[in-house]
Write a protein that binds this DNA or RNA. Structure first.
Lengths: 369, 369
DNA sequence: CACATCACTGAGACCGGTCTCAGTTCGTGA
DNA sequence: TCACGAACTGAGACCGGTCTCAGTGATGTG
């Protein structure tokens, strides 16, 4: 039956027998609770060492109802932003003696739902997640109410009544677009993306141009900031310049190529993430164009490579590590019983001004060069 | 006592009562095992739905002895190589219905030991890890023998008798160095690195120059390949050119700066990882030098940004995703009882020839430019 | 010296599932 | 009509810990 293939583990009963005490006493000695005499404590620990006793965490969790573990559901661990965010989580979790269970959601609401269910089934103490794009979040609210606190990261769908640690995407984008406007640009394109990694490229979602695709909340906010900035200068939004979907790197590159091939190509491109930024820069290089002479670029998320490209990329830097770390700390407070009203922490971004923004080229056609 | 703060969960007993059957029958209906009549099955599932029953995975694992979960201990999730590798793991794991517990080891043997212990305590079915640099691996062998199979990734300390999925670091490096030698270089430096992320920079290890630091097995193999290639051309290894330690990005950058400041600076730099590559390229740009005119560069690990720098970087591409995926599949076979002799899978690397390697500059002093 | 107090210990319930085993019911063939 | 097996069900042990509660013996106190 149980553990057929595994070597029979030594249990606390075995230790107790070897030490000549009851299970309860052995448990007390080993668990460090209750009262145990010095002599018995030594006997038991000696016996445990002798037998190579390793407590069964499952059994302990079963009876205590606590697992000392957190569930993390993020979009894609292979995206540097989420990798760094996850690192912030695991560092804080470790410092607090908590384990971490990780699931990728690939922005798929169904996968997210399943992940949350698994987390609950495993009695995890709390859940950290970057919500997938969807209006349905009952499972999150339910989990939260059933005693498994949930803290949102990076995105914050309104009105969920959950804690969140985010960044002001709208405002950061708005400022970046203004930076471009100030430099004289009016034909500014927007490329979003950052979906599943290339390796799993099996289900090409219908995401060519626009709003029939579910977009991550962050993308929505960034689009909002983009539109707001343009509106503030009375520049009509040209829908051909708005390229958003669930683009991975290659797809983003293709989008950028299309942009450059337009009759009136943009003079600046805002890449709403480090993955689309990569694709965009690649497309620009492919076309033999130069940054910022021929085209200006700003990226949302300051990837580690952004000052190693030529020229160094002007980018909005987000505190990914801190988002993860603070979210974990917030979750811990909830786990420990804090039931104050939900808080949304908005962390600061910074526009790192480097060399990828210049004046717009006046010639609208592709330069010879 | 148990679950004080959590809302009392509905158990299978509650469902059974509501459906008017015994716990055993309810469990059969819900668990889909044994025999249950059509009518009872419907009653039970209806009652379960009604009450919002969610099975307690902990209890199930407890009695079955199976957790359907894997433990993953990697150096640093924030390193793109490991992030991608982890993605390979989680994809395969999900396809097989397994959960994944992740721990960062930061190349610290003690953290690794603890992680493995936690994995065993939680009765995880198997362990995937990138072994930390140390001669002591008893805990891995012990875990394996006690019925928790272990598969190594990326590194493979000799003689452990464990499965592994690796890349031929020595040979790949040797070929890359030969590529440099063929171009005429003789003063070739080697910069390793890729330790803990900058954010946790608290314990500055004594890793300035050489062999008193424990190095990852991969680094050792790469050094070996580097030395072999030089020896094959009768070029004496200059110890000043060998810079290896637990360098994160900034440290690698500093090392590269030191290299460039030598009396006889190298004409080519081999960066033994994407993080030191980043630091190296940054240092070169800082110094106003140009690649490959002033200095040639080859990187181990083809980071996603390598063809976006100017010029695109010649790099050794490793199948990170596949390493994770294949390791997981191998582990699964072991979990399912395969007890054939351990296998070491060596995956192919590829030297992606781009534009960062040229002829050595004859002038040994820093060029004016 | 009687009794309260304290330190320590053991018995056994409990967590929420799974699973074995012993019925019970029913249909079917002899 | 009886025997037999198949289909179904319930009782209860079990997994390996934790934790409550009721002792037990030693010590202290009036």
């Amino acid at each position: 039956m149980a553990r057929s293939s595994r070597r029979a583990a030594v249990t606390i009963g075995d230790v107790a027998r070897a030490a000549g005490v009851s299970r309860a006493t052995a448990a007390r000695a080993l668990g460090g609770y209750g009262q145990v005499s010095q002599r018995v404590h030594e006997q038991v620990t000696a016996a445990a060492r002798e037998l190579g006793y390793q407590p069964n965490a499952l059994a302990r969790n079963m009876s205590t109802g606590r697992t000392q573990s957190l569930g993390v559901a993020i979009a894609n661990i292979d995206d540097p932003f989420y990798a760094r965010l996850t690192r912030g989580i695991t560092d804080v979790a470790r410092a607090e003696g908590l384990e971490v269970l990780v699931a990728n959601t690939d922005e798929d609401p169904e996968l997210e739902r399943r992940a949350v269910q698994v987390f609950q089934a495993n009695q995890l103490e709390g859940i950290l997640l970057t919500p997938a794009p969807t209006a349905h979040a009952e499972h999150l609210i339910a989990a939260n109410e059933q005693g498994t606190p949930v803290v949102l990261m990076d995105r914050h769908p309104r009105g969920l009544g959950l804690d969140a640690v985010v960044v002001d995407n709208r405002e950061a984008t708005r400022r970046a677009i203004h930076h471009l406007l100030d430099a004289g640009h009016t034909r500014i394109a927007f490329v979003a993306g950052g979906g599943r990694p290339d390796a799993r490229e099996e289900s090409p979602r219908p995401s060519p141009d626009s709003s029939d695709v579910a977009l991550a909340a962050t993308t929505l906010e960034r689009i909002d900031g983009y539109r707001a900035a343009l509106a503030e200068r009375n520049i009509p939004a040209d829908s051909r310049y708005l390229r958003c979907g669930d683009f991975h790197r290659e797809a983003a590159k293709a989008e950028a190529h299309q942009l450059l091939a337009l009759d009136e190509p943009p003079t600046a491109i805002f890449a709403a993430g480090s993955i689309p930024a990569l694709g965009t820069v690649e497309a620009i290089y492919d076309s033999g164009l130069r940054i910022p002479d021929d085209l200006s670029v700003i990226a949302f998320d300051d990837a580690d490579w952004s000052n190693v490209v030529q020229p160094p990329l002007t980018a909005i830097s987000q505190p990914a590590y801190d988002v993860g770390a603070l979210a974990t700390r917030t979750l811990l407070q909830r786990i420990r019983g804090d039931d104050s009203p939900p808080v949304v922490h908005v962390l600061d971004t910074e526009l790192r001004n480097r060399k990828s923004v210049g004046e717009p080229r006046t010639a609208s056609r592709r330069p010879a060069e």
